[in-house]
Amino acid sequence: MTATIIDITRDHDIALRRASDVLGEGFPIAIPTETVYGLAADATNPVAITRIYETKGRPRFNPLICHMADLEMAEHYAVFDPISRKLAELFWPGPLTIILPLKAESGIHSLATAGLDTVGIRLPKGFASELIRAFGKPLAAPSANTSGKVSPTSAQHVADDLGEKLKLILDGGSAPVGVESTIVRVEDGAIRLLRPGGVAAEEIEKATGLTVIRPEGPAAIIEAPGMLASHYAPGAAVRLNADHIEAGEALINFGSRSPKGIEHSAAVFDLSPSGDLAEAASNLFDYLKRADATGATRIAVSPIPDHGLGEAINDRLARAAAPRE
């Protein structure tokens, strides 16, 4: 597969229709934004989100920024405190991502939020906003590059890197900002900077009259989406690579295994009866929550292959099973 590239300036209406069609089929596309080119897919569709991770390679369950068409759409999915709303009114559309509490039953899939109860939201400028409005759903969109490579600021950058993995690349010229969005979170009436980016902290301070709390060293910077590992742990203890089930344990199975003592389990949830790692990835957070909701004191997890998406699944399971402070 080689991506079709459509110039949104020359073929605006064709680009809009084709992009909506491919997104509706559950596939990611590359879109221009004012920051960098994004690898965008339906934020409510777990298969589409899984394909984002697969396309980028060596996927991790970092939460993905969800892009909205306007403030009204954003308010449908997240809860705004007064300061966050002021930030939105001041800087949206634009290169600012705000971490907000996710509304219950919002429709954004847990794979996009990495199982967190928050969601990073941004309103992009230009064609991306128009596309989201036409599609009618938020788009999860990390940068459109192989994990670990330099972020793309042109359609050609995307084509050189991911052209054989995508169906569609929309060409909007060079990204005017050229760096990713700034990420902030409002806590206890203060604005915390989680990642510097397209909006300077000083600009936020000047506009709001509030001091922006900078990160204290490298460890604080990784609090940006995807680095809050402690949030992955359920209430119940987690036991990995289980080859037997003890009475009262809830089992998260994989590949229709029949571990010894399975008949004694409190409940059984199979991430993928057929052993499909993509299906397992899309079910992981949901099934951890379901297993926890059974009231079992411990969750036993069958062995998961440690390749492809299995590497990411095992990474998150290891964090969930880590000793509690």
Rank of each mutant, 00 (worst) to 15 (best):
T9L: 10
R10A: 15
R10P: 00
D11R: 15
H12E: 06
D13A: 14
D13Q: 14
D13F: 10
D13V: 08
I14T: 14
R17I: 12
R17W: 07
R17P: 00
A19D: 04
A19T: 09
D21K: 15
D21C: 01
D21A: 14
V22R: 05
V22L: 11
L23P: 01
L23N: 02
G24I: 12
G26P: 04
F27W: 14
F27Q: 07
F27R: 15
F27T: 10
I29Q: 02
I29L: 02
A30E: 01
A30F: 07
P32I: 12
T33N: 00
E34F: 13
T35F: 09
Y37C: 03
Y37S: 02
Y37A: 01
Y37Q: 04
G38V: 13
G38D: 04
G38F: 13
L39S: 03
A40C: 12
A41V: 04
D42A: 02
D42W: 09
T44R: 15
N45M: 10
N45R: 11
N45L: 11
P46D: 02
P46L: 09
P46A: 06
V47W: 09
A48W: 13
T50E: 13
I52L: 03
I52V: 13
Y53P: 00
E54G: 00
T55W: 07
K56L: 02
K56S: 00
G57V: 11
G57E: 05
G57L: 07
R58S: 12
P59F: 15
P59R: 14
R60D: 12
R60W: 05
F61N: 01
F61I: 05
N62P: 00
P63K: 06
P63R: 05
C66I: 15
C66H: 01
M68W: 06
A69Y: 09
D70I: 09
E72W: 08
E72P: 02
E72D: 15
E72T: 14
M73K: 10
A74Y: 12
H76V: 09
Y77T: 09
Y77M: 05
A78I: 08
V79S: 05
D81P: 03
P82I: 13
I83A: 02
I83K: 12
I83S: 04
L90R: 14
L90D: 09
F91Q: 03
F91S: 01
W92D: 00
W92E: 03
P93A: 06
G94F: 12
G94N: 08
P95N: 07
P95K: 10
P95C: 06
L96I: 11
L96Q: 02
L96R: 05
T97E: 04
T97S: 15
T97P: 00
I98K: 04
I99G: 01
L100H: 09
L100V: 10
P101I: 10
K103A: 02
A104H: 12
E105N: 15
S106F: 08
G107F: 11
G107K: 05
I108A: 03
I108M: 07
H109K: 10
S110E: 13
L111H: 04
A112H: 07
A112E: 02
T113Y: 01
G115I: 10
G115C: 11
G115M: 08
L116H: 14
L116P: 00
L116E: 06
D117W: 07
T118H: 09
T118Y: 09
T118L: 06
V119L: 14
V119T: 03
G120L: 11
R122Y: 12
